[in-house]
C-alpha cells in the first residue's frame, strides 16, 4: 500500500482532500459559487461578457408560469429544459422536436405536454436541486452536435471538460455518452471520459468507470486519436471563463455545436478528479507549475500558449 501511495505521489495524482484544502477552498471564494451553481446566473454573465453559450429561450420561476411553457417552446425545433441548480446532469430533459402537442425526447420516446409540465413542476419543487430547495427551470437552445463525435458517442451530446487553473487550461477531456449513461455526459452515470492532449486537441486514451478503455462500448470505434476542431478557440473560451467568474480553480464544460461552434454549457467550481485517469496523468505537477508561473502570463493568448507549450502529452 505504501508503494501505491508512493507511485500516486510520484505521478502527482490530485485526490479529493487536497483538491478541497489546497485548491477549491483557497482559490474559489465562497461568494462566487452562486455564479456557477446557478446556471441562469452563469448564462447571463456569459451573455454580458460575449462568451458564446446556448441561447436562453425562457425561464420558469414559479408554478404559475408553467402554463407559458408551450408559448416559450413554440416554433422551436428542439429545446432543453434544465434546472438552474441541478447537479450531475440530473433533471435535464432534451426534446428533439414537437408534433402537435406531443414532444419527442432524445431517447425517441414521445411525451405529452402534461408529462412535460409535470417534469417542470418536479423541477421547480426542488427534485433535482442540491438540498431540495425550490429551483427554476431554464429552457434553452438544443445543441446540434458536431458529427465529429458521431462515431464515438451514443445519443446525447458529448461535452468537453477543461480544468482551468488561474486562467490557464491545465487538463482536458471529452465526455462521451454511452447506452449505460442513457445519453448523458456524466462519468458517474456511465459516460466515457477520453483525455485530450492540451497541445494538439487530439484525444488520448479513455476511462470508463474507473478503468481504462480503448473503444467505445456501443459503437466499437477507437476512442484515441480523434482531432477536436477549433481547439485553439476552445482553449481561449475556457481561459476567458477565469475572468468571467473570478474562480481560480474551475471546470469549464463546452459543447461543439455543428453551426455555432463551441458554446459554454456550464461551469463547475468543484470539478471531478477522474479526468486524471482519462489523461493517465496527475494534475498536481501542472497545478504547481501554474501556481509558480502564472504571474508572468497576462493575456489570454499568452495563457493558452503557455498551456499548449507546457502541458503537451510528450512534455507531461
Amino acid at each position: 500500500m505504501t508503494n501505491l501511495i508512493r507511485r500516486l505521489r510520484e505521478r502527482g495524482v490530485l485526490a479529493i482532500n487536497r483538491r478541497n484544502a489546497q485548491y477549491t477552498l483557497i482559490y474559489n471564494r465562497r461568494g462566487l459559487y452562486p455564479l456557477v451553481d446557478d446556471k441562469l446566473l452563469t448564462k447571463q454573465l456569459a451573455q454580458a461578457n460575449g462568451i458564446a453559450a446556448p441561447e436562453l429561450y425562457g425561464v420558469i420561476e414559479v408554478e404559475g408560469q408553467v402554463e407559458h411553457l408551450p408559448e416559450i417552446v413554440r416554433d422551436r425545433e428542439g429545446f432543453v429544459i434544465k434546472p438552474a441548480h441541478g447537479s450531475g446532469g440530473e433533471g435535464i430533459l432534451v426534446a428533439l422536436g414537437q408534433i402537435n402537442d406531443k414532444f419527442r425526447k432524445q431517447d425517441g420516446r414521445i411525451i405529452t405536454l402534461d408529462e412535460l409540465n409535470h417534469h417542470v413542476f418536479s423541477l421547480l419543487s426542488g427534485l433535482y436541486s442540491l438540498g431540495g430547495q425550490p429551483d427554476r427551470a431554464l429552457i434553452e437552445y438544443r445543441v446540434e452536435f458536431n458529427p465529429i463525435f458521431e462515431s464515438i458517442s451514443y445519443q446525447g451530446v458529448p461535452d468537453i471538460r477543461i480544468i482551468v487553473f488561474l486562467g490557464v487550461p491545465v487538463m482536458s477531456m471529452v465526455r462521451l455518452p454511452t447506452r449505460m449513461s442513457e445519453g448523458k455526459a456524466n462519468l458517474h452515470q456511465g459516460a466515457i471520459g477520453a483525455g485530450i492532449d492540451i497541445a494538439t486537441g487530439r484525444t488520448l486514451g479513455a476511462v470508463w468507470g474507473n478503468q481504462p478503455v480503448n473503444e467505445h462500448p456501443d459503437t466499437g470505434r477507437a476512442l484515441a486519436g480523434v482531432q477536436i476542431p477549433d481547439w485553439e478557440k476552445l482553449l481561449e473560451l475556457a481561459a476567458r471563463c477565469h475572468e468571467l467568474t473570478g474562480l481560480g480553480y474551475q471546470g469549464v464544460d463546452i459543447v461543439l455545436d455543428r453551426d455555432k461552434g463551441p458554446l459554454v454549457l456550464e461551469l463547475n467550481a468543484r470539478p471531478g478528479l477522474n479526468i486524471q485517469i482519462a489523461n493517465k496523468a496527475g494534475l498536481l505537477p501542472r497545478l504547481r507549475k501554474v501556481e509558480a508561473e502564472h504571474d508572468t502570463l497576462t493575456s489570454i493568448a499568452e495563457r493558452v500558449a503557455y498551456a499548449r507549450e507546457h502541458f503537451a502529452v510528450s512534455a507531461a
Binding site: 500500500m1 501505491l4 501511495i5 507511485r7 500516486l8 505521478r11 495524482v13 485526490a15 479529493i16 482532500n17 487536497r18 484544502a21 489546497q22 476511462v207 474507473n210 478503468q211 481504462p212 486524471q276 485517469i277 493517465k280 496523468a281 496527475g282
Partner: peptide, 21 residues
C-alpha cells in the same frame, strides 16, 4: 484532520490505474 491533504484509502483504489507505469 481538516487539513489532511493526503490520499484517502478509497483514492488508492480509485486511482490505482494511474499507479501502473
Amino acid at each position: 484532520m481538516g487539513r489532511y491533504t493526503g490520499y484517502r484509502l478509497a483514492d488508492l483504489y480509485r486511482f490505482r490505474a494511474l499507479a501502473k507505469s
